[in-house]
């Protein structure tokens, strides 16, 4: 290590500075959410938890949280189901159109958000679906399918097909094999996919903003609060809760993803 540092001190310094650049905006919110002052500036005045305490019992906030949990949960369920079956086909089966299909399901990752949001709004309204949580769920499922497919593909990659063949040979039906062999083995991958797609949906703003109508999700609620300087400390506290929640979910997801990689090999 010391030899490397001597060889290339500039690059290591740069890497550390880059990490600081990445983490300052993320750590800033929790830091100032504990500050006993209403503006985000140095010097820090003192420690307080009152901004968090004030969040409790706010009707609109609670409702948006419930909305987000519903949207995230249903989205994660739909995206993970779609992703699981598709990933299995991509890993196991050779069929015409496989490459096209694989490329297509990754497309939502690169389409500009505003275009997805505006075109979905127009589409949904013209088929009679009003802006609502249902519309947000359909949009978020579209957005999160690539994440589910990618995670489930790595879960199936590690999974020995001989296990399924053995189950067939021993007389299990297709459904029985799926339920008693496939699902238990890729279960950690399923959990990881569920958590990741849930988090992506939970944090997503632009689609929820366009498609939610009068049912705001948590990010849309935060957006409405950002405009009021007086609400700033509460917004910081709420944002910090959201950050903590996302990180906990993703660390858990990472844990399950690794377990799925390990159990397979």
């Amino acid at each position: 290590m010391t030899r490397l540092v001597r060889n290339f001190p500039g690059l290591t310094t740069y890497a550390v500075l880059y990490l600081v650049f990445l983490y300052v905006p993320v750590l800033l919110l929790p830091l100032f959410s504990l500050n006993d002052g209403t503006i985000v500036a140095f010097p820090i005045k003192g420690f307080t938890l009152k901004w968090y305490a004030e969040l409790v019992g706010q009707e609109a906030l609670l409702q948006s949280l419930v909305n987000s949990l519903i949207v995230g949960g249903v989205t994660a369920l739909l995206a993970t189901s779609l992703g699981m079956f598709a990933a299995r086909a991509y890993v196991r089966n050779r069929f015409t159109g496989r490459e096209f299909s694989e490329a297509l399901v990754m497309l939502p990752l690169v389409v500009p958000g505003i275009i997805v949001a505006s075109s979905f709004l127009v589409l949904f309204l013209s088929i009679g679906l009003k802006p609502s949580l249902t519309a947000v769920i359909l949009g978020h499922t579209f957005l999160t399918v690539p994440f589910a497919v990618a995670i489930m593909k790595s879960a199936f990659d590690e999974f020995d097909p001989a296990l399924e063949e053995a189950a067939y040979d021993l007389g299990e039906t297709v459904f029985g094999t799926f339920r008693r062999v496939t699902v238990p083995i890729v279960a950690p991958g399923i959990v990881a996919s569920f958590l990741v797609t849930f988090t992506v949906s939970f944090d997503e703003f632009i689609l929820a903003f366009f498609l939610g109508g009068d049912q705001p999700t948590l990010p849309v609620y935060i957006w409405s609060q950002i405009r009021f300087p007086a609400k700033l400390p509460n917004t910081l506290a709420l944002g910090s809760c959201l950050l903590a929640f996302s990180v906990v979910l993703l660390v858990t997801a990472e844990f399950f993803r690794r377990r799925s990689a390990k159990s397979g090999s």
């Binding site: 086909a89 089966n93 496989r98 399918v145």
Partner: peptide, 16 residues
């Protein structure tokens, strides 16, 4: 095998 692959990937492909 081919038809199963198509059937399994169809929901995601069609949806997206």
């Amino acid at each position: 095998e081919a038809s199963r692959g198509m059937a399994l990937s169809a929901p995601a492909t069609l949806y997206v």
